[in-house]
Design a protein around this nucleic acid. Sequence first.
DNA 1: ATATGTTTGGTTGTCCTACAACTATACAAA
DNA 2: TTTGTATAGTTGTAGGACAACCAAACATAT
Lengths: 250, 250
Amino acid sequence: MRQISHKIGATQHLPSKVASFITREIAAGRYQPGEQLPTEHQLAETLGVSRNVIREAVSQLRADGIIHARQGVGAFVMEPERRSAIRFDRETLKTNDSLKRLFELRGILETEAAGLAAARRSAEDLKTIKQALDRMSGEERWQDGSIEADLVFHREIARATANDYIYTFVCFICEEIRQSIQIARYTNPLPELVEVNVAEHVRVYEALEAGDVEAARQAMRAHIWNAGARIDAAPGDAGDTALTKQDERD
Amino acid sequence: MRQISHKIGATQHLPSKVASFITREIAAGRYQPGEQLPTEHQLAETLGVSRNVIREAVSQLRADGIIHARQGVGAFVMEPERRSAIRFDRETLKTNDSLKRLFELRGILETEAAGLAAARRSAEDLKTIKQALDRMSGEERWQDGSIEADLVFHREIARATANDYIYTFVCFICEEIRQSIQIARYTNPLPELVEVNVAEHVRVYEALEAGDVEAARQAMRAHIWNAGARIDAAPGDAGDTALTKQDERD
DNA sequence: ATATGTTTGGTTGTCCTACAACTATACAAA
DNA sequence: TTTGTATAGTTGTAGGACAACCAAACATAT
């Protein structure tokens, strides 16, 4: 066994728990933008941890642009629009509704990424993508290896755009997808939910191989749209199916 | 005066400098994925800071998914594809070439965001966007208020998509743009480089008002493409004009 | 010989105290 | 009114101490 599969709700690392707590307090409006946070001593006493733990948490919040600490004065909440990092709260944002919005973003990004990749992909890019495709078809469709190959497939297409920003964003979204898959398998081990559709991937690959920009875009859009549509089948925690009416022209 | 304009190259906060240092060491391949970092004691001694500083830095790197610390064992470098946060190194990634790639991503995202916004925008959304537009036209075109209104305009369109993920991503990119504008004005105070084109914004707004999805997409794409094209006029630091040949069909 | 329990050294996690650097405010003096 | 100064409070950094934990070597029993 390569890995011990870190327990899903591990109870460790105080600083990250504190950081998550303060972040949620801010998100809930408990502290408004511009407002001053309690001092580190007060936070330490209130939460029953040492000041070191508070400092590690505060350090992270500052790095993310969530708060702004001024020596000799205090720490202040920043406007949420001015964050300098993107990070999603894993345990909070994994309802079905939220996942569908994530897939909408994913569709936008990867559709255009596929188009760019069709125009710019090198021979090596194509080979790497093909390898991932082969690994996907080789294994059982809901096996770990197949899911991993699926993610590699999407990432390598993003890499073929020769745009590191696009690659970074797609990698990040893939990582979120991986997390939500892990949660989905944990709560509901039905394999259909994470089944990999090989045929759709083949269609994307053939378009990339042919250098057909428009075909690559359409194949990728259809693929991600289908994957997103399957989310409804899964029993998420929130029952808010309201208003997910999309407009799918183009 | 509302703000003291934080000095651009401030020499403060050791933990963030340490975090940036280690991040760059990893990015440079000095430490490979899976490899173990030096112990916190060694890092503290090597860099000449206390272990507390190291711990704050390590805490941030772990939160970003750059390293993975195991109690009793050590800290290990993770694969760059598995990062759990997006953060760009401000001082490293601000060449003209890099900015053009950022604008390519921005164009993809905001083009589709404008399309979604045209279909979904509420009356209030439209009003907020119009306010930003008015502030833009009211002031001098390279004034601070005009630039700020420009960013608000783009952010509010993203908000009108009713997709918080899209909104978060667009906010993040806007923040990067703001930083690069600040740098650009610092090194080269020519106002033309950050000039705001009101006419293009008006065209986007009118499409949103009319609910014309296709017109909104085209107007936004043209706008961002023009803004990106202006980057070449600015004297970036790196002289790598090599190979910026993009394929701009559509 | 294999399996199991134990020791040992090393690493991260947390706590504590102390002091330096810095700031806003109040107060005193010109 | 302005300017300088003292003061209390806050964040930044340092260093030591111990707890929690782990891997590997070692010892013991079956």
